[in-house]
């Protein structure tokens, strides 16, 4: 069965969606991600949708679900790279993705996560960092 790969980068997980998500694939991704957050203790999840040309209400709900589910496991989710046409369509459709952090690209998403997690992130090597 087809799967979306989840990459681990330090205390973050990175998912790049390159294919059109049909329902089962999206639901599998949701489960895989939550399990992965639990297993790795990741503090943040980045979902790159820059290659996604369509986000309908189903897919929007999956993104919202992932954000809420990771939050209760103490990890924040940031959706990055949304195409402008997708943003226009989502809002007209009535889906504002409230509760989901978004950023323009992976880099900005990453710094957003770092800001959210603050300096007391135990998973990051802080040996040289003795400031209070």
């Amino acid at each position: 069965m087809e799967k979306i790969p989840i990459l681990r980068m330090g205390s973050f997980l990175l998912v790049t969606i390159q294919v059109d998500l049909y329902d089962r694939l999206a639901l599998t991704l949701e489960t895989d991600l939550i399990n992965m957050v639990h297993k790795t203790g990741a503090r943040g999840v980045l979902i790159d949708i820059s290659a996604v040309s369509i986000v309908d209400s189903f897919m929007g709900r999956i993104l919202g679900n992932i954000a809420s589910m990771t939050r209760v496991l103490d990890a924040e989710t940031v959706v990055v790279g949304m195409q402008p046409a997708v943003a226009i369509t989502l809002i007209e459709l009535g889906l504002s993705l409230s509760g989901v952090y978004t950023a323009l690209d992976v880099e900005r998403g990453m710094s957003l996560l770092q800001t959210k997690l603050g300096p007391n992130d135990e998973l990051v090597d802080d040996d040289a960092d003795d400031t209070e």
Partner: peptide, 17 residues
Amino acid sequence: GIVNQTKLITAASELAR
């Protein structure tokens, strides 16, 4: 154009679902 395309395809996706 890309915006109208995206709107149309999204609409089709909603109705098909």
